[in-house]
Amino acid sequence: MLREEELKTFVEGTTNYFEVAAQQPATIGSPYLMEGAPQVHDYTGIISISGKREGVVYFTAPRAMLTVLLMKMQENDFSHETMRDLVGEVANTISGNARRDFGRDFVISVPSVLAGEKPEVPQKPGQRSFIIPINWRSHSAKLVVSLT
């Protein structure tokens, strides 16, 4: 069973990114369990984990949110590549946080980025996923923790 501390580590890794990169903290909405197929926004940064836990953790955000985030970071390039870069960085941060806290028990992959209409998010059948809404300014993204 996923522990609260583990979930918190992933959540903090994500919210911390907003706070540090854009000087504006993100808050989380009330978390819930995923029902049905994974639903992602425009850009998704994903890390896979093996070891004591198996599965994936991903951050998925709509283009609009990423655009504002980039603006706050004084970026003026809003290309597809930059968006990919950004969700990749968020995933990278989540991964770094997890390594710090559970480095011993987890093997964490280098982040990869999914984008486009219907990206294939790896999902083991029967695996429960936690969805944590990440609210930042008026936008909302999702952190999905899908681990056994």
Partner: peptide, 18 residues
């Protein structure tokens, strides 16, 4: 109240479902 307060609950909910 904030979303963080609900994290333990969703874990317990998952556990109950399992």
């Amino acid at each position: 109240l904030s979303g963080n307060d609900f994290l333990p609950m969703v874990l317990k909910l998952d556990e109950l479902l399992a």
